[in-house]
Computed example of a mutant assay.
Amino acid sequence: MLSSREAIGQTCAETGTRTLVEETCLDGVALKPTEVDIDSAHEVPLGTFTVDYEGHEHVPDVATLERLAADREVRVTVPVRADGFDPLGDSSAFEALPETVEIVFVAGNPAYLEEHEQQRAVAPRLGAAVERVSNAWVGTEGIERLALATGATQFELLSRTTERTVHALRSAGFGGDVAVYAPTVLSDDEDAILDAVGAYVSRRKPVARALPDDAPTDSTATGRARSVLLDAATDYALVGSRERVHAHVESLREAGVDTVVGYPARGLDEFVG
């Protein structure tokens, strides 16, 4: 008999298409504590939850994480350079996390790090962290080679090169797991897509270079800017109808991706219906 965690985590091919999320074949959902009530995430019918790090003050408390992890795999993002999470220094905040949660180690977004934290070396901390937690995922943004060197599950942002890169890794013999994080908009409406992920995709370097100067990045974008942003949304996010998202996820799997985690760019409600 399947445990509740295993039952929630079955693929859509096994469970049928009961809900909007299951029809996309996503494996998990990314939760930003500043945007959602973590307790409300229980309604999302997926087997893996990742909790983003947005500063010490926004890390969910132990009781909340334990409730969420009761029947799901919950992974908490841990910035190895931050005070309290430093495996070579103060790791008190890391040690306070409940044993029922898993970990995603990252270098840490500078927006959430103090200046002295940003100066800390990533490589030795990442190595020490992975030695400490054998089944951790490693976020690859900005540290792709370091992340790969750990041999841990690679957790990377969806991009226009993801399928090609993962296929190459598999061809070269990489046998570890690969997980992908993707902002997700379950709508064909162009304005809805731009309002949800336009600003996000505009920060990707190839997109920023292609955009006209001072162009808006939301639904007010017109002309070339609008075209560039909409094209980029299909490269750096999962957007469109449930069938279109399903096809994109399946294409990622065919390339060798093991787990696809969607970030609900228009809010968690879209992942409940």
Rank of each mutant, 00 (worst) to 15 (best):
R72F: 05
V249R: 05
Q118I: 04
A221T: 11
D83Q: 10
A128M: 10
V228K: 10
S202H: 09
Y200S: 01
A265M: 02
I103V: 15
P212R: 06
Y112A: 12
A149N: 13
H42Q: 13
N135G: 07
E243W: 04
Q119C: 02
R226I: 05
T17Q: 06
V249H: 04
A69R: 05
F271P: 05
G256F: 00
D61E: 11
V29M: 11
A147D: 08
V228M: 11
V261F: 00
R244P: 00
R244D: 11
R160S: 09
D191K: 01
A147V: 09
E35Q: 14
E250K: 07
L157D: 01
P183I: 01
G223V: 12
G142E: 08
S227Q: 14
A168Q: 13
T140A: 03
E95Q: 11
L97M: 11
D269N: 02
D235Y: 07
Y112Q: 10
D214G: 13
R266A: 03
W137S: 13
R120N: 10
V261K: 01
N135C: 03
V36N: 11
F49L: 15
G198Y: 03
F49W: 10
S4F: 03
G84R: 05
V185L: 08
N135W: 09
G16F: 02
T165W: 02
D71M: 00
L169T: 05
D83G: 02
E102M: 01
P79R: 07
F94D: 03
E6R: 12
D235R: 12
A96K: 10
L229R: 08
T161C: 03
L146N: 01
V106E: 07
A247E: 15
G142K: 03
V44K: 06
E35V: 04
D39E: 15
L68S: 07
V239A: 07
L148F: 15
Q10L: 15
V130R: 07
L88H: 05
R203D: 14
L113Q: 09
V178G: 04
G127A: 13
G151T: 11
V80E: 06
D71V: 01
T17R: 08
P110Y: 03
L97V: 06
S241T: 13
F94Y: 15
A208C: 06
E73M: 04
L169V: 07
S241Y: 05
R125F: 02
V166D: 00
R5H: 07
A232S: 03
V261G: 02
K205L: 10
A152F: 01
V78S: 10
